[in-house]
Design a protein around this nucleic acid. Structure first.
Lengths: 193, 193
DNA sequence: TTTATTTTGTATTAATCATTCCATAAATAG
DNA sequence: CTATTTATGGAATGATTAATACAAAATAAA
């Protein structure tokens, strides 16, 4: 194939873009921010992303979706997926303050996009619904194997967990503190046991 | 007092500003938006708010805090404040789609402000902590009066409710639907009974 | 009625925004 | 070596941003 070789492949650009979008959100991140953090000039940037800022953001959250799919794969190979999920919630308490302040880029996007961009809002909502489905499946399995005593409809409990996830996204900013968070996480997980 | 009479008092400006901030958030709301929606020119605007956009936003969420204080006053005069709080949660399910998409301006602000404006972040976090305190107080009272069976530390349960509030702020955007929300709300409230 | 004081509306500024354009660089095919 | 193709960096564009400057308007005090 002819032509000058690509210096900034889209994967690298998306990774760097994701970092800054995660911190500042969609609107507050300028194209200048994106160029600075990726090291690319606007020429290269628009060469790889004809859709501009919006396209990169969409691909940023889709990349996060991939990370989530990886976790889902681990769950499928696990004996007790619900325990993995619970440990994941517990691990949140161990994060550092900077990470707490960033929160979850998907949950953040649902809040930001409502009256900013409808397509991106829907994209983020759908990812959260996939996570919810993963929660429900794990709970159903645990119920079938008699591993938990709570026999509430797994759909309700899955929604309980996704609600908790989104609530935790704010709680950790209020109390970016290991002790406090771990207490609350254990309390909420105890409902599903 | 001498001088041309004020045409746009600050209370009116804040009210109108709050509406648009609530919808679009801080960053996505331009000064042009604010001028259009208030009807004021930039002269009047900066005459009443030397601090510009940031000052109006701060006063917008402080005004929301006042509305919350009003509710707190009702609670103090009530026999069973926890029941009032529960009914308040239930009433969320009855809102229309537009209202669901707006969500809670304070919870929204905590998410948006983390890496945008530290002062405003703290302001919003403090308001949420006040709400949490109100939850805890109501729960303590209900426990003392033997009105509920759950005897978990009221602080933990207060944090459970504020976490739920923030989670609901996203869940209602995922499912802006009366049935779904009411189901989830009842399930979560059942924990405190 | 004149003077002092304050608000208002608009024009202006200066900065930043997202995007496009284009000459140049760097590769391959012929 | 030459022609062709593609990517790059940065200048240029035009829109939008937040904020200021200032003359005109509207009032009250003197």
């Amino acid at each position: 194939m002819r032509g000058r070789p690509v210096l900034y492949n889209d994967k690298h650009l998306i990774e760097k873009a994701q970092e800054i979008f995660w911190k500042k959100g969609y609107t507050a991140t300028s194209l200048g921010d994106l160029l600075k953090v990726t090291g690319a000039g606007s020429g290269s940037f628009y060469n790889t992303f004809k859709g501009g800022k919006k396209e990169v953001f969409r691909k940023s959250i889709l990349q996060r979706r991939e990370a989530f799919n990886q976790f889902k794969k681990e769950l499928r190979e696990s004996e007790s997926p619900l325990d993995l999920i619970k440990d994941f919630f517990r691990s949140i308490a161990q994060a550092d303050k900077e990470t707490h302040l960033k929160g979850c880029i998907i949950a953040n996007s649902v809040v930001e996009m409502a009256h900013v961009d409808n397509d991106l809002e829907l994209e983020a909502v759908n990812i959260l619904k996939e996570v919810e489905q993963m929660f429900s499946d794990a709970i159903r399995k645990a119920q079938e194997l008699q591993k938990i005593n709570n026999h509430t409809d797994p759909q309700i409990l899955g929604r309980y967990l996704i609600t908790f996830w989104c609530g935790l996204n704010t709680l950790r900013r209020m109390y970016p503190d290991r002790e406090t968070l771990l207490h609350q996480i254990e309390m909420q997980l105890a409902v599903i046991s």
